[in-house]
């Protein structure tokens, strides 16, 4: 059976991570299985963890009165859920629900922040990886703002 360290090295988010850093991170990590339909995080709640998704899909969204949850993004294997744990005030911006049974490695945020403070090199590496993901998400969101497939005015 894979150890958490093996699972993390094969995850895209941690690709190429220094072995010593990986060792430190696993100290804050554990495997979780999230039932299909379960709520994982809630808007406004304390951001005390993040998840490296190994399988299954997660819907990220907002709940509007009378409209249920409106999905704004979906996360899949090799994605990570959550970055608000890294920046004060550590509050989630969106809801996340499991669309399938989700297998993930979850990290305790307080533990992680402690390790990052103790080892700035690790902190920088992790912050860079999160920043890269934020960049990708921002680009994807900008492309959606273009409304590429929208109808031009019929002329």
């Amino acid at each position: 059976m894979n150890t958490i360290a093996d699972e993390l090295t094969s995850h895209r988010f941690f690709a190429g991570l220094d072995a010593a850093h990986l060792e430190v991170l696993t100290g804050c990590a554990r495997n979780v299985v999230i039932a299909k339909g379960a709520s994982i995080i809630r808007e406004g709640a304390h951001a005390d963890a993040f998840w490296a998704v190994r399988s299954g899909r997660i819907a990220l969204g907002v709940t509007a009165p009378g409209r249920g949850m409106l999905t704004i993004d979906t996360l899949h294997a090799d994605d990570v859920l959550g970055w608000a744990w890294l920046f004060p005030p550590y509050r989630w911006h969106f809801d996340a629900d499991a669309l399938d049974e989700v297998h993930a490695v979850t990290f305790d945020a307080v533990c992680l922040r402690g390790k990052c403070a103790a080892d700035p090199a690790l902190g920088f590496d992790l912050a860079q990886r999160v920043a890269a993901i934020l960049g990708d998400r921002l680009n994807a969101a900008r492309m959606r703002l273009l409304d590429l497939y929208g109808s031009p005015q019929p002329g």
């Binding site: 969204g61 409106l70 979906t74 899949h76 994807a140």
Partner: peptide, 18 residues
């Protein structure tokens, strides 16, 4: 994949490149 989900959509949301 859809750029904008509507209520009830359980599929993927996001631009094709993602």
């Amino acid at each position: 994949t859809v750029d904008r989900a509507t209520p009830g959509w359980r599929g993927t949301v996001g631009v094709v490149t993602t």
